[in-house]
Amino acid sequence: MASTRIVLAGFGGQGILFAGKLIAYAGLIEDREVSWLPSYGPEMRGGTANCSVTVATEPIGSPLVLDPNVLVAMNQPSLDKFVDTVVPGGFIIADSTMVPNIPDAASLANPGITVYAIPATELAEKNDLKGLANIILAGKLWECTHFCERETLSAALAKCVPPRKQHLLEPNERALQLGIES
């Protein structure tokens, strides 16, 4: 993909913005064009926080992603809001613990979309990775798109986890791998 355009959406507190930042940092490490734009408007106060991330080879115009090739949805309103914006051939990755109604690919308006239902929140809890469903989904996103080298993803994680929270690097790394393998 010349440009990977991603919408990540969920409730505030699920780590949507952090997962977006991880992807953006991976793009930066590989010297690609990168943009990250959070929602900061009234919608984030009403249920869905979302962010647009673009990793591209050409300079990025609007950082607001209106036609994602990947949607990561961590709650039902987010999935419902963005499901029809995913372009043909794109990916929808939904946390099936949090999103009860996940459409199958055949019912979508656009053709060729692959839908993954990953019980990320449940997986996180079972593996002693509470709160890292976002990173599990980011791992799955990487597995779908290979938007960067695998080791870049780990390097980006090391960048995004602040120095005073270095003990969280290991569980984050495990969550990433779990997502890649799920």
Binding site: A24, L28, V34, S35, W36, Y40, I60, P63
Partner: peptide, 8 residues
């Protein structure tokens, strides 16, 4: 938009 967005 410019204020909130992150770029390298």
């Amino acid at each position: 938009m410019l204020g909130q967005m992150m770029e390298p």
